[in-house]
Write a protein that binds this DNA or RNA. Structure first.
Lengths: 114, 114
DNA sequence: GTTAGATATTACCGATAGGAAATATAACTA
DNA sequence: TAGTTATATTTCCTATCGGTAATATCTAAC
């Protein structure tokens, strides 16, 4: 019952779930393939997939008996968007620091000439 | 005892903690100021700050009696870096889709000329 | 050194997460 | 229709989370 962004970050806060995303990044995989790749039980994987789906990070379709799992960019974009807001801040901070360093160097050079 | 990236994402998976980061994005704030801004109790805020510090998202210094809380770019950069890896994937997917649309348009135009 | 203010730590609570095992459902196949 | 495969759901356990209240610690000022 939490907000979508929290759900997305919570979904990313688990190594198994990040491994699943890494596994399907290059193309859809069946649940069985994901179970085989990770050491977990099948119900355990299904639970993780449910969390990822609820966070908008994966989509599932139905192909015959299997339910291939796809990466969904929408959820990741939301998370990236939130972080990007702060990236502007810290890159700004780096820029200001660079400017400060340049200024200090310039003054140092000027003092050297005195 | 979990891995650093999980700790970072877990720290971001809470609205109160994201609000704290938003509040200190433009400059350090004291714990009291953060307590006043959010509706929570002081120990509650201290707990959240501990989580944020463990995730490398904030730093704390000591200035007289207060402990100003600063945004720390390091943790955010790790999280952003992880997501960026997948951003390349999904932007690649968009590019490929754009290329496909261009190709379809080109063929359509060619057929139109026939 | 005593006192006051700012913050951290501890103890406790209810809710939820992550995990395994058992069971149920859904769809292909014989 | 019965059997088999793929996946989902339920149940149960323990650990952790988010919250509050009470207490402790650290620093500055007197």
């Amino acid at each position: 019952m939490t907000d979508p962004l929290s759900r997305t970050f919570l979904a990313l806060a688990d190594p198994t779930r990040r491994a699943i995303l890494a596994q399907i990044a290059d193309g859809a995989q069946t649940v069985s393939a994901i179970v085989a790749a990770n050491g977990l039980s099948q119900p355990g994987i299904s639970k993780h997939l449910k969390v990822l789906e609820g966070a908008g990070l994966i989509r599932r379709e139905r192909v015959a008996k299997t339910r291939p799992v796809h990466l969904d960019a929408a959820g990741l974009q939301k998370a990236a968007g939130w972080i990007d807001h702060y990236r502007q801040h810290w890159e700004g901070a780096f820029d200001r620091m660079d400017a400060l360093i340049d200024q200090l160097k310039a003054e140092e050079a000027k003092n050297g000439r005195q």
